[in-house]
Design a protein around this nucleic acid. Structure first.
Lengths: 140, 140
DNA sequence: TTTCTTGCAAACGTTTTGCAAGGTA
DNA sequence: TACCTTGCAAAACGTTTGCAAGAAA
């Protein structure tokens, strides 16, 4: 993963720098984070501007993508750098469990194929109460 | 729909005003819009602040929701005020076609049920090339 | 050595807030 | 009348930019 990342930077004529390696490493540990979390957990990247610039670069070269999960804007590694997955977001405990849903995915792809739509990316999310929270029978 | 909307405002102790009716009507026509579009198509709501306040209220009482569709932050009526649907987003012509995918939905609900996750909302999106654009065999 | 990147400071656009005037119940 | 909402102006916030110094190729 790290080598692929370095290669992608070079392909695009961009340098492999300490800050970028740091940010990439951080993303590999974190799963999905908000920009604010980045700034708060400050990663020895001294300036906000540098962090924003790195994020923008990562988006351009396809290392990260933004998504809106359970109402929050999050940054995540793309499927090229992390296993593809979907999310079950619990509105009570706030967890966003990453899961693999092959049957649902297959149904989606079949649907699109039937309509002539050529999928290159997809997104499936369920929001509600996770098994634990729904056991506790507290509706909110 | 309009009556339900008025009722919801009253339930929450908020007034039915000209601006709010205007905004709600606009949302019913538009499908999904960015905040910027609101401001540009200015709706005889004189001030930005008022528009933002109205949007915030609509979110609070469950009339609208924000989502991140094909990389853009959009405002849409919730399923209570508009038929539930999913999106096929074409990266070439930019359209976000609203579709109904009952089989995919059923597969998703079955998956969640099997895991004890109690779904109250879900989201399915496919990004790629629509039938028209993929016929034209121009990859980008 | 040449080019790319960083940190700083300032600019920019979007969203939020306080307050007084106006509208709604 | 009492409360809620609007418009205005100013503030706050997140994000972007120009530029000179520093790091990578």
């Amino acid at each position: 993963m790290m080598n692929k990342f370095k290669a992608v930077l070079k392909e695009h004529g961009r340098s492999v720098t300490k800050s970028r390696l740091l940010l990439f490493g951080y993303l590999q540990e974190q799963d999905a984070v908000t920009v604010k979390q980045f700034l708060d957990d400050n990663l020895a990247i001294a300036d906000r501007a540098s962090l924003y610039r790195a994020l923008q670069l990562f988006k351009e070269v396809g290392v990260v993508e933004e998504r809106f999960l359970a109402g929050r804007r999050l940054i995540e590694l793309t499927d090229l750098y992390d296993a593809h997955h979907h999310h079950l977001c619990c509105r009570r405990c706030g967890t966003a469990t990453a899961v693999d849903m092959p049957e649902v995915e297959a149904a989606l792809l079949a649907f699109c194929k039937a309509r002539g739509f050529c999928v290159d990316k997809h997104l499936i999310e369920a929001d509600g109460l996770c098994a634990n929270c729904s056991k506790q029978r507290i509706p909110h």
